[in-house]
Design a protein around this nucleic acid. Structure first.
Length: 428
RNA sequence: GGCGCGUUCGUCUAGCGGUUCAGGACGCUGCCCUCUCAAGGCAGAGAUCACGGGUUCGAAUCCCGUACGCGCUACCA
């Protein structure tokens, strides 16, 4: 047994911002951990130096904190199995690669990009699966030593044995079989000395005692490689759960091209975190009943991996908007008032004249007419500022000599009625 | 091209062999409520359960095939 209690992880690569699909993956990991009394770990997979973005890790963490997905172990807070940033674990990968090299489960490869491209083109032209031809496996130990001594650039590849079956057990999809003839001798260590995802992921998941690997469906095709790696190390294989993809309206993988994909975009648009969490939780999972409104703690109570769907889900803004309105109305007036205050401050329309009482009254009047807090100043600016224009046509049509006098006396009468009304209310 | 996964109203989904000529939600339409806009209530349109074969007394539900869609196919994750 890997660990007595479930241990799961969210392992994003810091390429700039937290993707909405990443948020759902993180959420399902979080829900599963909380539901089962396990641990939720954050691990940064920054093994691609070319794609590293300054400040991305900080941004990722702050977005997760905003969403309420607090991790038990990870960057910033540490834990028993750190460091939790892969670029700080290079020695660990090196040591483990040595073991694989010694046992013949991996080998050095000195092939040039040109040769690899040529090989791949030829295979594709013949309609074959493009896999490395094990050219460098034929090198004698002496030849390898020679090349290493000469300082030739190299990678380390895993040695996949032909004609075998690899079984992948997936909670969501059942058992899947792969033929090793279709599995490439994947690069484990790149020529810059950094590990690829495949190696780092397996080594870290094992060392961090991850029991359930819950990740996006795009990883399913490379899972047999990971299983082979676990076997090469002689390690227990975790349980896999490959989540269905989040889709664009045209059913392709959710992408930037067709709308916002960053969690911070939705936050900036004024979506409540409660609504966003509630919405993405339901994109691919449901409790088996008709319930649609959930708070985070309620999701924890109801969640289970085996009720996750197999097919992708289109990210539908209309339903998100509805849920936002639902969560908005579910909030207390005082909470809404403080959200309104925040909004007024950010748009620069806040004034000290606005008492909390006033803001609360505004919120009571408006909360059933809006889906977003920011719509209140947009739709009902008259609560906060005197009008700077009038309906010209209306004035021309209705404004007479005696109009100011009439309006003034009407106002007086209103005030009097209001006083009476207040008295009556007190009596009641 | 190869490998893999998937396929129930426009969208998210319920359904796990009979009680379903398929239920809910969003959106849409109409009505009610109402000084407006909403919210709320009610009603309605909307799915031959991708298609074709089986298995079975009986299939959306099990099996096979086909089609279509998507993902992967990098010294990216």
């Amino acid at each position: 047994m890997i660990s007595e209690f479930p241990r799961v992880r969210f392992a994003p690569s810091p390429t700039g911002y937290l993707h909405i699909g990443g948020l759902r993956t993180a959420l399902y990991n979080y829900l599963f951990a909380k539901k089962t009394g396990g641990k939720f770990i954050l691990r940064i997979e920054d093994t691609d130096r070319a794609r590293f973005v300054e400040g991305a890790v900080e941004n990722l963490i702050s977005t997760m904190n905003w969403s309420g997905l607090h991790y038990d172990e990870g960057p910033g807070i540490g834990g028993e199995y750190g460091p939790y940033i892969q670029s700080e674990r290079l020695e660990i990968y090196k040591e483990h690669t040595e073991k694989l090299l010694e046992s013949g489960k991996a080998y050095y490869c000195f092939c040039s990009k040109e040769r690899l491209d040529f090989l791949r083109d030829g295979q594709k032209a013949k309609g074959e699966q493009s896999v490395y031809d094990k050219h460098c496996l034929k090198l004698t130990p002496e030849e390898v030593a020679e090349k290493l001594k000469d300082g030739l650039p190299y990678v380390v590849r895993m040695n996949v044995v032909a004609n075998q079956r690899v079984h992948v057990k997936d909670i969501i999809r059942g058992n899947i079989d792969f033929d090793t003839n279709t599995i490439d001798d994947q690069v484990l260590i790149k020529s810059d000395g950094f590990p690829t995802y495949h190696l780092a992921n397996v080594v870290d998941d094992h060392l961090m005692k991850i029991t359930h690997t819950i990740r996006g469906e795009e990883w399913l095709p490379s899972t047999p490689k990971h299983v082979l790696l676990y076997q090469a190390f002689g390690w227990e294989v975790p349980v896999f759960a490959h989540l269905p993809l989040l889709l664009n309206p045209d059913r392709s993988k959710l992408s930037k091209r067709q709308g916002d994909v960053a969690v911070e975009d939705y936050r900036a648009k004024g979506y409540l975190k409660e609504a966003l969490i509630n919405f993405i939780a339901l994109l691919g999972w449901n409790a088996g009943d008709d319930r649609e409104f959930y708070y985070m703690n309620e999701l924890v109570d109801s969640f289970s991996l085996d009720r996750i769907n197999k097919s992708g889900a289109v990210f539908n803004l209309e339903k998100l908007d509805w849920l936002n309105a639902e969560h908005l109305r579910a909030k207390s007036d005082s909470e809404l008032a403080s959200l309104l205050k925040e909004e007024l401050i950010t748009i620069g329309e806040y004034s000290d004249d606005f008492s909390d009482e006033l803001l609360e009254k505004v919120v009571v009047a408006m909360k059933e007419r809006v889906k977003f807090i920011k719509e209140i100043p947009q739709n009902a600016g008259y609560f906060f500022a005197k009008p700077d224009s009038y309906d010209e046509k209306g004035i021309q049509k209705g404004w007479k000599e005696d109009t100011p006098g009439l309006l003034t006396s009407y106002m007086q009468k209103l005030k009097v009625s209001l006083i009476h009304l207040k008295k009556i209310m007190k009596l009641l």
